[in-house]
Amino acid sequence: MLQNPVRVVVDADACPVKPEIAACVRAAGTRALLVSSHAHVLHAEEGVDVVTVDASDQAADLYIANALKASDILVTGDYGLAALGLARGAAVLTPRGKTIDEENIDELLAQRHFSAKQRRGGMRTRGPKPFTDEDRDRFQQKLTKLLRRLQENSFA
């Protein structure tokens, strides 16, 4: 048994790669925790635990921020939650397979702030590009490599 088991914690409300996460954790012999609001019905399965929080604003983010450990991998597209995950020592990956770390979080947060400011001022901003099969594949490859690396480090 691992000293610090690696767990994948997922901001699951809008996460398009839940099946890939389940497959990756089963293959790696670890677990995932999907956190969502009551508005999204998720079901536990082999290797995957589900926590449902109330529908209040930020309830899932607060639950995740309090549950994260340094040995966890956080999957989220929310840069604010990603910053909290990094502060807790977690590795952070977006559903498109982008690694968020101390090197890029400040720029990502600044971009988010700038876009929100433009929207409040009445400007229209571009939404995200459509999610593709290439995004899905990239995510699964990155998560598999990250799980392997963190599991190897947990033996040390």
Rank of each mutant, 00 (worst) to 15 (best):
D54N: 15
L74E: 01
A55G: 15
V41P: 03
H40L: 13
V75Y: 07
H38F: 15
D133W: 00
P128N: 05
R7W: 02
V35K: 01
Q118D: 11
S36M: 03
K69A: 15
R112Q: 13
A70R: 08
S36A: 15
I21P: 10
S71H: 10
A44P: 07
K18G: 08
L109A: 06
A28S: 15
G29C: 08
N104V: 12
L109H: 00
A23Q: 12
F139R: 01
L108A: 12
V92G: 12
D101Q: 00
S115N: 13
R124F: 12
R138W: 05
K129A: 15
F139Q: 01
H43L: 11
L146F: 06
F155N: 09
D133Y: 03
R138Y: 08
A22I: 04
R148F: 13
Q111P: 02
R96A: 13
A87I: 04
V35F: 04
P16L: 14
G80A: 14
D61E: 11
A23Y: 00
T132M: 09
G97I: 12
L81C: 12
A55E: 07
N104A: 09
L74D: 07
A14Y: 08
T94M: 07
L74P: 11
K69G: 13
L81K: 03
R88S: 14
E102W: 04
C15T: 05
H40S: 06
K142W: 02
D72P: 10
Q3T: 10
L143V: 01
V35G: 01
D72C: 11
I21W: 03
E20V: 00
T144D: 06
V51L: 05
D137R: 09
R26S: 10
V75L: 09
S154T: 08
K69H: 14
R120A: 14
S36F: 10
G97A: 13
D106T: 13
L34M: 06
L62N: 09
L108D: 02
L33S: 10
G97N: 06
S115C: 08
N104I: 09
R31T: 13
R126K: 14
A67T: 15
R96S: 07
Y79K: 04
Y79L: 13
D61Q: 05
A110P: 05
A14T: 11
K142C: 09
Q111A: 15
V8L: 04
V8I: 11
D13T: 12
L86K: 02
P130Y: 12
T94N: 03
L81M: 06
L42V: 00
H113P: 00
G127E: 08
I100H: 00
N104E: 03
I73F: 09
T94W: 08
G80K: 02
T132E: 09
L109N: 04
G85E: 02
R124L: 08
D72Y: 13
A65S: 14
R149G: 14
R136G: 00
G85Y: 10
H40V: 15
A60D: 05
S154L: 02
V53C: 07
L81A: 09
